[in-house]
Each structure stands twice: as C-alpha cells, then as structure tokens.
Design a binder for these strands. Structure first.
Lengths: 344, 344
DNA sequence: TTGTAGGCGTTATCAA
DNA sequence: TTGATAACGCCTACAA
C-alpha cells in the first residue's frame, strides 16, 4: 500500500507488505478467488472440505475483505447514511443508537452526517454522502433545504424519516403526530383542572407543531394560551430555569405549563423548588420526551413518551425491508403516551 | 438528466437511466474523464475555461462522484471509523459530535461502530469496519478484546483513543489521567473539611481508576474510603437516588461523596432534597463530567470538568495531521479542572 | 461444485 | 495543460 504512515513509533515508515488480498488467500488455499469470495458470502454453495480449507486460510492469513472493492463490484455498498441534526440531544442519540444497532446486526454500516438545525451546507453534506453510494438513508428530523431534498429524490434510494414534522416527506416515515401530542397534553392539563396555560418551547419546526396542536385543543375547550416563551434549539435545563419567572408573571393562579422538552421542564421544576413554588399545588408542568431526568426529578415529571429506541429500530427494519424490495407501508406510526407522574 | 421516478409508490421499479458517471460529464464537456476528475479534485491544474466548462457540465447533469470507485482507485477512502461504547451517554456523544464535525469539515466521513461495554463481538465489529479501508480510527474508551486490538495494530492505520484508561494504547491518545482526577477530588474534599468519605461509582475501568486515585490520595492524607457503592454502567440519576440512603448509613457526620458521574451526583442531590439532607451543610458531593444537569441543579454541583468537545476536536485534528504524515505527539493531555460550585 | 473472463467508476502514471 | 492506459480488489455472468 502506498505512502500511508504506520502507527508510531515511526510515523513515516511504510507498512510492511501489502494487505492480504483475496487472490493471496485463494493461492494459499489452492482455489480460485471466486471460491474465497463464496466461502465468505455464500458458504452454502461450497463443499464442506473446500469451505473448511478456505476459511482456515482466511483465518491464518488474517484476511480482511476490502469492502470498498466489493461495493464497487457488486454495486451493494452495505452502507446507510444517517443524517441527524445533532447527537448531543438525548432524544436523537437514543434513536440513532437503536437504529445503528439494528443496522449493524443486519450487516450494514452507518455513516454519520451531522446536519445541524439550519439548512446551511445541508445540500453539500447530502451530496457528498450520496457519493458513498449508500443503500438507504435515515433522516432524523426533516431536511431543511430544498436542494438537499431534490438530491435525495434523484438518488432513488430508500429513505426513512423519523422525528419529522408534517411537511411532505421524501419516502418513508416512522413517526407520530406532533400536533396530536400538543392536543393530548392540552386535554390532559385541562382535565386535571388547569385553566391558565403557558408554554416554553424550542422554536424548531417540530416543537412549533406541537405548540399549534396545543393551542388548537385549548380553543376547542374554551381556553387559550396565556403566555409563551420560545427558546432556540437545542433546549437546556438553564433555559427552563430562566423561563419560570417571566412565565409566572404572565399567568393566572395555578397555571399549567407545557414544555417542548423534558430538559426545559426539569429546569422549570428546579427553579420552582428554589423559588418555593409548589408543584403541582401552585403550578403544573408537562414535559416532552420522557427523558431519564424527568423520571428522577422530585416530583417526577409528567411527560409525553415517544419511544426513540422503538422508532430507531422500526426505522431500521423498514429500511432493510425496503432495500430488500419487500412491500412496506409508507407511513408507520409509533404510539405516544402521556405519562402522568407528580407534576400534574 | 432524465427524470427518475421517486422511490415510492413503486419500490421495485428500476431507476431509469444509470447514474451519471464521470465519462458522461466528460463527454458533455468535451474533455476526458481525468479532466473532470481534476476539475473536482485539483482545479488548480486546469485552465480557467476548461475548468468552467467542466464544472458547468457537472452542475447541469447533477453529477455526484462515486466515492467508492474513487477510494478503490486512489486508495484513499476519506473515511474514519469511530468506535464508541454508546452514544446514549452525553459524555461520549459530545466528544463524537465534535469529532465528527471537524472530520466532516476536513473532508472525511465518519462510520459509526457501537462497541458496547463488554468485549463481545468487538473483534468482529472492528474487522468488518476495517474492511472499509478507513484512513484512521477513533476509539472512545479502550478496546476490550485482545483480538480487536491485534486487528487494529495489523491494519497499520492511525488510531486515536479518547476517554481511555491507563492500559497500553494502540497508537495515539488524547486524554487525561483518571487516577489524577480521583486524587484531585480527594484533596479538594479534604481541604473543604470532609473527614468521612464515600463513593458512588460505575464499575467500568475508567471510573475504577478514578476511584483508586481517590483512595490513594485519601490515604496520603491520613483518611480512608468509608463506604462505596458500585453500579453497572451506564450510570443514571435513578441509581444515584437509590445510593444515598445506604451510603449515609455507612458514613460518619458530614460526609463527602465522590460520584463517578454527574448523573449519579444529581441523583444523590435530588434524593437529599427529598430526604431533607442539607447540601453542603450535612453532605458534600462532587461529581464528574460537568454535565449540563449538574450546572442547573440547586445547589449547583461541584464537579470535575473534562471538556469532551475539546477532546473530540483535538482527537480529530491529531488524526488528520497523523494521516497527512505530520509529526505529532503520541500523547496529548487535556487539562481537567475542579469546578467548585454549591455542593462542596 | 468450481472456475474464467470481464467490468464496476475512478484515479495514478506516464506521455504528449 | 490535457490525455491514454492501466490498475484498484472484488463480484456478476456465464461456462465447465
């Protein structure tokens, strides 16, 4: 192999001896290259003795198939591209974790693309990654830029979107209704007796959809949104804490606040404890995401659970099926659930 | 370019018209394939008019270079493999996020491998990923299995480890001394007046190293570890909460507890609030990791800050330099810092 | 059950 | 500054 540095201690030294190739193994085992290929990819086609002999040679020589060459030749890259706004957010990380696990077990490798929340450089990112000839793509959250979408459509590969909003998708969707979440929360809070309502929300499109659903459901019950506070993504505990005071100023007695993330809600809860605002006596709170932190707070946070792991797994299985040519539904819905705990 | 059908509604349809290849663009621009290649990879070699003509054709035809073919031919995959125990842990996720960002800006794609905390399937994972011909590898935490290490060494590619322990590494390391963290915390707590010491620790190798350093430093000051509670990784708030009661039973008045993660420490803090244990009056706590949650708690958590973003970025830059053949130090150290806040 | 021939789409090398 | 030719390492197609 060409001038690539070995690990230390001598970074500039040439690696000794080229990597073992399929023909080396073939020669060692006394068969042709294609037989080695079959031993690895379709062992059932070979006779027992041949198979054994070849695998022994593979083992002995430490042969590692060059997947790049294999991909070029077979036109099957066995790669999936995953585009995620950020993995610093636990909700996305959880879904990606589950997705990658399933993909890995199915023999696919996942290439990670960090998209961010704005559409800047998105088309460039998508284009570059499409150059890897992925067999499928995972989109966490919708694509922002039109150009990126166009590229994807032109690539004619299966695409699954999760955590997406209601805008028209590219191909497959595994998700839930964000507006429906907002409605469910509004009804829950109303039913628990709240009559003054506030919201602390990230101003990303999905959160805003939940907010809209929230507002609509309130109107239907004859109530309305009295105070709202938008914060830029990604949401943090700090912003939750900071939001409490201004929010309380705008709200009537015994208000209910819907937070677009458990992180924001937990921040509210911490600040409430500090300020002596009793929850749920003086204030009720509902979060979103069912994060670990909400479960551990005191009182434990009422929240909406969307199973990120479930979504990731489902997305992976859909994608695999779709790649295999199996018919699958264009939209899959993961149930959401209001988990009532101590804050409502 | 001929209109190609969208993925659905017919998942089995052949995409009409092959993807645009470099020769197509070359023909359209009236040049040879290699000229198109140069326009994209070494534009400074071409004359202005030729360059313009080629790029226009590229744009017009929506040409996306096949990186698989390019990698095979040039023996430069422009891929990096990142092996991470899990991205569900914010500390790892943060470092990987930063690493991937830098790599992406430098023209590399990152393939994600989820290793888990035990060594099962690790060698298989590493081997398969090495088949992608990555130009470098990021290891978050040390490799568990000996076989996997051997494979890596044989691959003779640059490797950076972050979040690793003191065991002999494969190539480059960007990190800090875990034992040193334990010592620093012990000294800090002792200096703040604590004389009874406990620990709540994940039982992964890195945390145990910190624990050891903690115990050693205590001994040096004439104190000792009075109570310890080990929990399986990954650490959670819940386990922190659950740990408080048994720990307090074993400790003398005004004890200090070192937690191997801010998550555990925050759990302790929440439980302390619930049980009416005053912090820092009755109990002092130091966490590890400087997670967002610790900053937002009340009182805010004293902790040890290891800048995951910094490590990720540094690791990326090291790897890039190493791949380029630039001499770089085998070990880089990121400073740690005790952030004293309200709990000590 | 095994093998031969040819090509996957790009870039290195050398030549003009 | 541009091009012709020959790999890169493997797998598909077809043949034996």
């Amino acid at each position: 192999m060409p001038p690539r540095p070995r690990p230390l201690p001598d970074p500039t030294a040439e690696p000794q001896g080229r990597a073992v190739r399929i023909t080396d193994v073939a020669a060692a085992a006394g068969v042709s290259a294609i037989t080695v290929s079959r031993a690895l990819n379709a062992p059932e086609l070979l006779s027992k003795p041949t198979l054994r002999r070849v695998l022994a040679a593979v083992e002995r020589m430490g042969y590692v198939p060059n997947l790049t060459a294999g991909a070029l030749s077979s036109r099957r890259s066995r790669m999936i591209v995953a585009i995620v706004p950020t993995i610093a957010s636990p909700m996305y990380a959880e879904a990606l974790q589950a997705f990658t696990k399933v993909m890995s077990q199915t023999g696919y490798h996942v290439v990670l693309g960090l998209g961010g929340f704005d559409g800047r450089d998105e088309e460039q990112l998508v284009t570059a990654l499409l150059g890897r000839q992925p067999e499928g793509m995972l989109l966490v959250g919708a694509l922002q830029s039109h150009g990126a979408k166009r590229r994807l459509v032109e690539a004619t590969i299966p695409v699954v979107e999760i955590w997406g909003d209601a805008s028209p998708g590219v191909d497959l969707r595994v998700g839930f209704s964000h507006a429906g979440v907002g409605e469910a929360v509004a009804n829950h809070l109303f039913d628990r007796g709240a009559r003054s309502f506030g919201i602390v929300s990230s101003d990303d499109p999905r959160a805003l959809e939940r907010l809209e659903g929230f507002g609509r459901a309130l109107e239907r019950r004859g109530a309305r949104l009295d105070a709202q506070r938008l914060v830029p993504p990604p949401s943090t505990l700090r912003e939750g804490r900071a939001a409490l005071a201004p929010l309380l100023r705008d709200l009537a007695a015994r208000p209910a606040v819907f937070c677009s993330s458990d992180l924001l809600a937990a921040g509210l809860l911490i600040e409430a404890a500090v300020q002596g605002v009793r929850v749920p006596a003086d204030l009720t709170i509902c979060g979103f995401g069912d994060l670990e932190i909400g479960r551990a707070m005191e009182p434990a946070l009422t929240t909406v659970s969307v199973d990120g792991t479930e979504m990731g797994q489902l997305a992976a299985r859909c994608l695999v099926d779709r790649i295999a040519g199996n018919p699958i539904p264009r939209r899959l819905t993961v149930p959401i659930e209001i988990i009532q705990r101590g804050t409502t």
